[in-house]
Amino acid sequence: MTYPNLDWLIPWYVDDYITLNQEQSRLLENRLINALDWHCHTQLPAYGQTLKDLAYDLDDSRLPLSVERLHAYADQLNILWRVIKIQIGPEVADILATASDEQLAELFENVEQRNNTFKAKYVDIPLAQLEQKRRKKMIKRINRWLSEITPVQKQAVFDWSAEIRPLAADGLDHRQRVTAELKNLLARRQEDPDFKGAFVDLLVNIDLRRTAHYQNDLDVNTDLTLMLLEKIERSLTPTQRSYLLGRIRTFSADLEKQNCDPSAVPLSTHETVSTQVSG
Rank of each mutant, 00 (worst) to 15 (best):
K119A: 14
K121A: 10
L44K: 04
D219M: 08
A156F: 12
E109H: 09
N78E: 14
T269W: 12
I248C: 06
Y243Q: 08
T179W: 02
R210T: 00
W12V: 12
V152L: 07
W38Y: 15
K137T: 09
Q153R: 01
W38T: 04
S147K: 15
I125L: 11
V152R: 10
L63Y: 14
N143I: 03
M227C: 02
V204N: 03
H41S: 10
S252W: 01
P4T: 07
E191I: 14
V67M: 03
Q76A: 13
E256W: 05
S61R: 12
N5H: 15
E256A: 15
E91R: 13
N5Y: 12
S274F: 01
W145V: 06
R175T: 08
L182D: 02
E181Q: 15
R165A: 11
Q22H: 07
D223T: 12
H71N: 15
P126G: 08
L44T: 10
Q103M: 02
Q24F: 04
I10Y: 04
Q215E: 14
Q132S: 11
Q153P: 03
T179E: 14
A168I: 07
P11I: 04
L96Y: 08
D75L: 11
D159G: 03
I33P: 00
R241D: 03
P238F: 12
T117L: 13
V220D: 02
